[in-house]
Design a binder for these strands. Structure first.
Length: 900
RNA sequence: GGGCGAUUAGCUCAGUUGGUUAGAGCGUCUGUUUUACACACAGAAAGUCACAGGUUCGAGUCCUGUAUCGCCCACCA
């Protein structure tokens, strides 16, 4: 007995069990066609990343789902992996190189990739070990990295297939250019930030009409040098006379046409727009419509080039802006400068404003767009919470081609080769351009495209590429036909476009069969975002992001898991604080001690199966409390089952907590104490305790896997070598088979006894006897049944309340009283009672009753209520009124007695 | 400009199809080494359910509007 410590110590237990689980291979997704398949693919974290609270939330949910699936007898697999994270990793490695005074570009592609690989080897895989600490039960034999050979081939195969099908093309387009990372970005990687900037109002002179000007507003005077037109709305009468004439661009001085285009908003500013086709996406389109020349005045790093003129050449774009304004002012062309707030697109990784830039890039016209929409609309794929369906549909409705090329080296190089010596190779001519997963056989005659693919253009095939696609043998080996489509995807709504939507399109495009067989997953659970208590996003720079590993060291992984899940309502953001983890730690400690208590009672009972425990029960010895706790257990399990179906994880933690803490420990274990001294009831009580503890461990296991595994074995519930994760939490059928029927009316009596005990304790506390164990009570019973209920439970109640006795009297006492579920309960005070204070207290209670009576009476005297409300509700109200009136009468008589 | 979410006790949140006197955890206050657990036990205080209308016999719950906060989408310079 003494070897069981008073407090649960998670660290040894957790490491011990994780090692055993892995060793036994119980996380392996070994195909068993006699079972139902259940599969999850992990959202692959960055290979060089470290565990954040976001990962904790996300992966705990996945682990809960996969463990519940295993318990439910499904053949479950959770496929883990990591992502090479192209731009993000390249940026980090480049920064590292810069510290050493080196430059990636100078090193060249081969060298850089070697260095990046070393960096990956050094920092990579840490997060995998951290996920293990958290308890994640992934099938580690299936670990996939997006730059693995097999996976890379799949990425290229997807590219080649789409190219051949005409979805992928190369073209000179306006793209979002990051001047820091020197690469194009997709629209999704641009983050709009509201900025306080200036709106410059300036004027351009009309050519040949000295003294006549057009006033123009701009936020970007540094692009004046690239202006090739001035535009007005064709319906704008103010400017009709100027259309067809020319305006004078101040520097470099040139005459540019004044054109009319519907795009121009007459109501904005002066209604005149300068057109810079090379530096603005809208201007570019207008330029196309009017055949305007495109003058690019910037270098890739957003400094000005020679076309901007001598004075500007080499200046950064913001220095150029200042200079341009200064020059305008000097030339008398600056009319006004106003404060102005507008949205500026920022590069996600570079954290600088992106520059719209015309460049040659690869684009993808998305495949299966309308089917992707239909898949979610039809319910083939369900979103939790469903409101994300609208967001998803809206994006698909407005979808634009995807820029998939990146001017970086860390990633999958575009599998396109150009024949050496051919200028402007024709992409549709196989003699000049080669597209294939493998390089051309005569590689020496070809140059491969320098660009790499957007990372998301590799992870979008994740659900089936991790199962061996497109290699038929690998697919067979890894069980694509069994595990695909995956069951649940757990991810954040921030990547609904980046990843979720694209995976759906990829699955529909590349997998065979009916729609239901091609979709990548059946359910998508969107988590909230973890924030701090001030509601701020967790970030390294704010320093408000706790290190999950420190928390695990302090509270245990189970405590962290339970704590996080307890405050993670479906789809709402989570305000996280360590107090939540304390709650989880306390829950584990309580589990530990409840089991410790049971073990201290000993008994050498056979716990090796639910049937064996049930066999120890003498059903004739079951009392109201046994029925009560078993009834609560049944309801708890049933509710939890429903909560799983609707992904209400926080609700499950509440049910576990409240059943285990309040019903089981707070009441049942306490009333057990008296009955355990009664030899005839002892065995049955211990058996009921074992049933409850066993089922609690099973129900709690997905949330707190380590401690439940430990206790499962310590309590002898598992047979030799049997892990708790393989045991079904169902028990209703076993009850039936054992002839155990829960008597709900007996269970209802427990509620009366609980109320009675609380009132009795409150009376004691009120009269400063809270710590005394010898209080004497007297009940004036509401009826004979209530008197009998008290008599049957008097021993338990003495222990629970801390009383030396409960007498029963039809006439009551002249003493402080409380109206309980069993009748008027008097506390016998040897010293006199302060009648005044007592009257005051009763008056307070009377007021409460009176207002309840009033509202109930009002309802019942309302003819509409009686005639329209359901019979059940009306009947309930009647019973309630009777009850209230009886209590009121009691109070009145007591008050009458006291005031004598 | 469009869309979505939130608003319930000091704090963080439950409240499932409308139905007794709105709940929990933390925190606060009081008491307790009662034969598992002070990471505990017992008791207590604490809410005009953001606001204004409406539907209904009945609204925290449904409808309309308003306010505040947050998020997403959007090529007005």
């Amino acid at each position: 007995m003494s070897e069981i410590s008073k407090a649960y110590n998670p660290s040894e237990v957790e490491d011990k069990w994780y090692a055993k689980w892995v060793e036994s291979g119980c996380f392996k997704g070994v195909i068993d066609r006699s079972k139902q398949a259940y599969s999850i693919v992990i959202p692959p974290p960055n290979v060089t990343g470290v565990l954040t609270m976001g990962h904790v939330l996300n992966n705990t949910i996945q682990d809960i789902l996969i463990r519940r699936a295993r318990q439910s007898g499904k053949c479950a697999v959770w496929i883990p992996g990591t992502d090479h994270a192209g731009v993000a990793t390249q940026t980090k490695v480049e920064a590292e190189l810069r510290k050493q005074g080196l430059s990636a570009r100078a090193l060249g592609r081969e060298k850089f990739i070697q260095i990046a690989k070393k960096w990956r080897d050094k920092h990579g895989g840490i997060i995998i070990e951290q996920l293990k600490k958290l308890g994640a039960s992934c099938d580690w034999d299936r670990l996939v990295y997006t730059l693995d050979d097999d996976y890379s081939k799949a990425v290229l195969a997807a590219f080649v297939k789409l190219f051949k099908a005409g979805y992928i093309y190369r073209g000179k387009r306006m793209v979002n250019w990051c001047p820091v990372n020197l690469t194009a970005l997709s629209d999704e990687e641009v983050i709009m930030k509201p900025m306080k900037s200036k709106l410059y109002k300036m004027r351009y002179e009309i050519a040949g009409e000295p003294g006549r000007f057009l006033e123009i507003s701009t936020t970007r005077p540094e692009t004046i040098m690239g202006d090739t037109a001035v535009a007005v709305n064709p319906d704008d009468a103010r400017y009709a006379e100027f259309v067809g004439k020319f305006a004078v661009r101040p520097f470099p001085r040139a005459e540019i046409p004044i054109i009319a285009d519907k795009y121009v908003d007459m109501k904005f500013g002066t209604g005149v727009l300068k057109i810079t086709p090379a530096h603005d996406a809208a201007d570019f389109e207008i330029g196309c419509r009017h055949n305007l020349p495109v003058v690019d005045v910037m270098n890739p790093d957003a400094t000005m080039n020679e076309l901007a003129g001598e004075e500007f050449c080499g200046l950064d774009r913001y220095a150029a802006r200042e200079l341009a304004v200064k020059k305008l002012d000097e030339m008398g062309l600056l009319v006004a400068v106003e404060d102005y707030e507008n949205n500026v697109g920022y590069s996600e990784r570079g954290d600088v404003p992106i520059e719209p830039r015309l460049s040659d890039q690869w684009f993808m016209r998305y495949p299966k767009v309308s089917e992707a929409k239909a898949a979610v609309e039809s319910g083939a794929i369900k979103f939790w919470p469903a409101r994300w369906e609208k967001v998803y549909a809206h994006w698909l409705d407005n979808i634009r081609d995807w820029c998939i090329s990146r001017q970086i080296w860390w990633g999958h190089r575009i599998p396109v080769w150009y024949r050496k010596g051919v200028e402007n190779p024709d992409i549709n001519n196989p003699e000049e351009v080669y597209v294939g997963v493998e390089p051309p056989p005569d590689a020496e005659n070809w140059n491969q495209d320098e660009d790499s693919l957007d990372t998301w253009a590799s992870s979008w095939i994740w659900p089936f590429a991790t199962m061996g696609w497109p290699d038929a043998d690998r697919q067979k080996e890894l069980g694509t036909d069994f595990f695909y489509p995956t069951s649940d995807l757990v991810t954040g709504p921030d990547i609904i476009f980046f990843w979720v939507a694209r995976m759906i399109m990829a699955g529909l495009e590349f997998m065979p069969g009916q729609m239901s067989a091609r979709i990548p997953f059946k359910n998508v659970y969107f988590t909230g975002i973890i924030r701090d208590m001030q509601g701020r996003k967790m970030s390294k720079s704010l320093g408000n992001s706790p290190d999950p590993l420190e928390i695990i060291a302090k509270y245990g992984a189970d405590g962290l898991r339970f704590g996080v899940m307890s405050c993670a309502p479906q789809g709402q953001d989570i305000l996280f604080s360590e107090e939540r983890v304390e709650l989880g730690r306390n829950f584990c400690n309580k589990l530990w001690n409840a089991c410790r208590f049971r073990r201290m009672a000993g008994g050498g009972a056979d716990n090796s199966s639910l049937e064996k425990i049930l066999a120890r029960l003498d059903t004739s010895k079951l009392d109201a409390d046994d029925h009560g706790i078993l009834s609560s257990l049944l309801k708890c399990a049933e509710h939890i089952g429903r909560d799983y179906e609707s992904y209400q994880f926080n609700s499950i933690t509440q049910r576990l907590y409240s059943f285990f803490w309040n019903d089981f420990c707070g009441w049942y274990l306490e009333v057990s104490k008296a009955r355990m001294e009664d030899a005839s009831a002892r065995e049955t009580v211990l058996a009921v305790q074992d049933i409850c503890l066993r089922q609690i461990l099973l129900l709690a296991h997905p949330f707190v896997p380590f401690i439940t595994e430990e206790l499962w074995h310590a309590m002898g519930y598992g047979g030799e070598g049997c892990f708790i994760q393989n045991v079904s939490p169902e028990f209703a059928e076993a009850f039936d088979a054992a002839g155990l029927y829960v008597d709900e009316s007996a269970a209802a009596d427990v509620e009366l006894l609980k109320d009675f005990a609380t009132k009795a304790r409150a009376l004691k506390a009120q009269f400063d006897m809270g710590s005394r164990r010898d209080a004497q009570f007297c009940l004036q019973p509401a009826d004979a049944g209530k008197a009998e209920l008290l008599r049957a439970n008097v021993e338990k109640l003495k222990k629970l309340v801390g009383a030396s006795g409960f007498s029963i009297s039809e006439s009551g006492l002249d003493a402080p009283v409380s109206i309980t579920s069993l009748g008027s309960l008097f506390i016998d005070l040897s010293s006199g009672v302060d009648a005044g204070a007592e009257l005051l207290r009763l008056q307070k209670e009377r007021d409460k009753l009176e207002s309840a009576v009033k509202s109930t009476k009002a309802r019942l005297s309302n003819g509409d209520f009686v005639s329209k409300a359901p019979e059940k509700v009306v009947e309930g109200a009647r019973r309630q009124l009777e009850d209230l009136l009886a209590k009121l009468a009691e109070i009145d008589s007591l008050m009458g007695r006291l005031s004598k």
